[in-house]
């Protein structure tokens, strides 16, 4: 999905803050990967380069996860991913290959922006769903089994993502 270009200079207050957050995040990541330091001769240029690259690819926009939302979302996500893995294993190992695929369209209740993109990516790890296209709030989904009660399932996932981002779902 191509988002509208938001020109935020890294020299403006908000842009600088966003750049700093990323710089710190990438530095921490380097520290973790190198077991607490060492190799900073390569690390510092890599971190700076990664920061500029990420700013160029994705300008800082205002979104945040709610800490409590994250705590609620992670176990849910892990459990659903495990269910997804078990479900797909059962189908792949079954001699008769029990699949009944369908392409369905789902109108998102989440507001446009990062939460929609996050939702589209999340459902790829959930049982039987693969997001094929996201266009103006309409998500095209490939289902591994059309018999699954996907509408309710997707609504539940949307509620979880809304809780994570702290946004309101649209009412139909």
């Amino acid at each position: 999905m191509r988002r509208g270009k938001r020109e935020i200079s890294i020299f403006s207050g908000k842009g600088l803050y966003g750049a700093l957050v990323r710089l710190v995040a990438f530095s921490l990541l380097w520290a973790v990967l190198t077991q607490g330091g060492g190799g900073w001769i390569i690390g510092v240029p890599a971190v700076v380069l990664a920061t500029f690259l990420s700013l160029g690819l994705h300008a800082p926009i205002s979104w945040r996860w709610r800490p409590m939302g994250v705590l609620r979302f992670i176990p849910y996500f892990l459990w659903q991913s495990l269910r997804g893995g078990i479900d797909v294993s059962r189908r792949a190992l079954h001699p008769k290959l029990p699949i009944d695929p369908a392409v369905v369209h789902h109108t998102l209740l989440l507001p446009p922006g990062p939460s929609q993109v996050f939702f589209a990516n999340t459902i790829n790890l959930l049982p039987g769903t693969l997001s094929a296209d996201l266009h103006e709030g309409h998500l095209t989904i490939h289902m591994l089994d059309a018999g699954l009660e996907y509408v309710m399932e997707l609504k539940r996932v949307e509620e979880r993502v809304a809780d994570l981002f702290g946004v309101e779902l649209k009412r139909r």
């Binding site: 991913s81 792949a92 290959l97 695929p101 693969l130």
Partner: peptide, 30 residues
């Protein structure tokens, strides 16, 4: 086992979408 399922899925699933669906989940879990 989950990694094996991912490989089996590539072989057994009939089209690109079902293969991706199978693979994304089993590789992550594996």
């Amino acid at each position: 086992l989950f990694m094996l399922v991912a490989a089996l899925g590539i072989l057994r699933m009939p089209d690109v979408f079902t293969r991706m669906s199978c693979n994304a989940k089993s590789v992550t879990i594996g």
